[in-house]
Design a binder for these strands. Sequence first.
DNA 1: CCGGCACTTTGATGCATATCAAAGACAACT
DNA 2: AGTTGTCTTTGATATGCATCAAAGTGCCGG
Lengths: 257, 257
Amino acid sequence: MADRPLTGSNDRSFENTLRDAIPRPQSAGGSPCAACPVRDLSFCNALTDEELDHLNRVSSDVSLTSGQSLFDEGAPADHVYNVTTGAMKVYKLLSDGRRQITGFLFPGDFLGLATRDAYAYSAESICSTTLCRFNRQKLENLLKDFPKVERRLLGIASDELALAQDQMLILGRKTAKEKIASFLLMLSNRAQKSGNKSNPISLPITRTDMADFLGLTTETVSRTITQLKTSGMITLMSGNEVRLENRDALEDMAEGE
Amino acid sequence: MADRPLTGSNDRSFENTLRDAIPRPQSAGGSPCAACPVRDLSFCNALTDEELDHLNRVSSDVSLTSGQSLFDEGAPADHVYNVTTGAMKVYKLLSDGRRQITGFLFPGDFLGLATRDAYAYSAESICSTTLCRFNRQKLENLLKDFPKVERRLLGIASDELALAQDQMLILGRKTAKEKIASFLLMLSNRAQKSGNKSNPISLPITRTDMADFLGLTTETVSRTITQLKTSGMITLMSGNEVRLENRDALEDMAEGE
DNA sequence: CCGGCACTTTGATGCATATCAAAGACAACT
DNA sequence: AGTTGTCTTTGATATGCATCAAAGTGCCGG
């Protein structure tokens, strides 16, 4: 094979790719403010200054290097997080090491929201990542005074649930090729929704992580991506980017048509 | 095979099994009241009379026979439902007919809660079923005045999300045997949590539905259950019941140990 | 510039589960 | 009691993906 543009994906290049591709969401007119971490979270748009102020009092910033664990399944769920830059993966493990990644989180996404006393999954960064951390207890007390925030959280949980149901269909009933096609489209749609370029898309995710997300092995992921490339559906570019050459055909493929 | 106790599962016996196994949850001291459908919903416990009264004004009852469709994926999501008696399945379809059941719903469970403008899945009864129907718009208006209800809904959505994540692990990374074991334990745990007998458990679900829930075929489900029976882990009883003979061993099996 | 490391790709083989086919079991209806 | 329809079980075979193995690629540190 002459070109191998997807290789060489180390932490450094992941970070750069993401920094370009996924700008930190900012509220209209606002500028990043170290003393005011909450103001730039996209879910806080449309909140009053008073509400923002209260949120700030229960939040702080967290920085992770690539591959660093944020918390493990079963740990007491003391905090809720919102990704500000970078990307995270959340996963569940079986005792023999089999792993299911239940989601990838990008700027604006919540972590540990749908959790009661203990985290139901482990969370780890897939590149250099910053998060906004909320004390759960304080946040919940605060919700009593600000029902609008609570409404927002219910909507967020609903969206997460819808994604989980899509993923169940993918895991239970789709072939390897359909899984990969669905995954690429999902990344593209998500990038578009958060205002980033949706084609080519940045792919800051290793074959192993893709495999553990899609219920496959790294070998099958690799072979399937090669097939898609050979058939001209996608092009692998430098900087861990993938160009979708024929989105309609890819969508048909994802649905098994 | 001499005994075939699981066969003969028609609608009638499903209903009877369920009627015995899954009594309708009732709030403390309350009795069923046709004019007051909301009062008996378990999620309404701890609400004030005023809150119940308001809920009643936006709710009505729905009855379904076995196998009847409640709504289809993509339809406008005008209503939210709560199962009062019976059982439902929710599923997503691929264009070629492949089906993934994303969940089974029993009394107390919500339908269409985590939904925005259109239903993200189809819903169908698996036996004679009654539901309490809420007008979505009215319910949402009502939430503004009763944040306690909204808080409750957020918790319910969170639980649903946790279940979905468990299911992803099952679909993506477990073997057929582990899937069946996990499924039986899930049914048992759920029955226990809603105060019903957890062993033997009622199994009002066809092989086909189990297969579509677990990402298998009916044949594999049947063979695997036969294996579990032969190895003495479970006993199939009359009336669509299954006795878990060794819960610990089953739990180990479900986790692949 | 070389060697080590992490990730990816490719190839050969095996297996768990799907597919295809048919018989068995039970309930409902006549 | 026989018929019909639905669901389940069992058997034979096929296949998609996993597994095992090894080479390729690019980055980084020495």
